[in-house]
Amino acid sequence: MIKIILHSNKLIDSIIYLILFITAVTVLYPVYWIIIGSLNPGDSLFSTKLVPDHLTFEHFRYLFKETDYLTWYKNTLKVAFFNMIISTFLVVSAAYAFSRFRFPGRRYGLMTMLVLQMFPGFMGMIAIYILLLQMGLLDNLWGLILVYAGGSIPFGAWLVKGYFDGFPKGLEEAAKLDGANHIQIFYKIMLPLSTPILVFIAISNFIGPWMDFIFARLILRSDSNKTLAIGLYEMVTGRGNSQFTTFAAGAVLVAIPITILFLISQRYMVDGLKAGANKG
């Protein structure tokens, strides 16, 4: 009986390891293909080899010397960074107000944010286009930033509100007895205890604009305001994959800021989880 149980456990472990191996290969194969494609000589997708005869950095040089890749990169970094700052502030402020204050329209406001999450963002593209046109923010990076920041509030506020609701109100009552006002409570008590959710919201608000194509394509028109998604798309569209390796080089560089952001924020996220575990 014991042998049967041990054999069964080994079989289950083998199946689990097999599933994990298949999952790892499925995830890493496209990454390897893009990286090795950026280092392959030639321009065509069909000339790309999984194990090339020799590697070259010519495609990276071409990006920086012959295209406006640096301009696209700066524009995307600007949009993603300022959206991260503005949207995180708006999300956290709205979540704190809905979580800790009682005011007329609070329930309807929460229901409105919940309903808005059920509709895809591109349903309001025409309205957003007309609104930005009337405000003079069409083909403007700040117009794109405002669209992203406003669109992140419903989901983010609901998420952070649920996190704030888990804090005991005794913390705020004790702070009020010490003479603290709502602003001091918000910045000195709520925010330090909310590091994990703040890091998650900030990273999400950075990645969204960094990878988005639809809204950027709608709002931005001039070459000087193009983002990475638009520039790389136009590099390969209608050209029969004749610049695939250059596109792959650009895609590799796109992943660098996100990777660095995750590596930097991981430590703060772990520290925040430890602090949250000990706060009770």
Rank of each mutant, 00 (worst) to 15 (best):
I86K: 00
L90N: 06
R106M: 09
L193M: 13
R106G: 10
D68N: 14
F213I: 03
Y163D: 02
P41C: 05
Q243A: 13
G162V: 13
L18E: 00
L141P: 03
K279L: 07
P168E: 08
V236H: 01
D212W: 01
N181P: 10
S222G: 10
M1D: 13
K49F: 11
D13E: 07
F64V: 12
A175C: 08
N225L: 14
A80K: 03
A157P: 04
S265E: 04
P104G: 08
Q266N: 10
S44P: 05
F21W: 06
G272R: 05
A97T: 14
W210Y: 12
V51P: 05
I16T: 08
I86P: 00
Y148M: 07
N181T: 06
N40A: 10
I22T: 09
I16W: 08
S38A: 13
R267M: 01
F200D: 03
E234K: 10
N225P: 08
I12Y: 04
F164C: 06
E234L: 13
K274Y: 02
L116M: 12
V147L: 10
N83T: 15
R267I: 06
E172H: 11
L70I: 11
N40G: 12
L63G: 04
V270W: 00
M269L: 15
F98Q: 03
L193H: 14
R107E: 15
I185C: 14
S204L: 06
G42T: 07
F82A: 01
I15H: 04
L6F: 11
V115F: 11
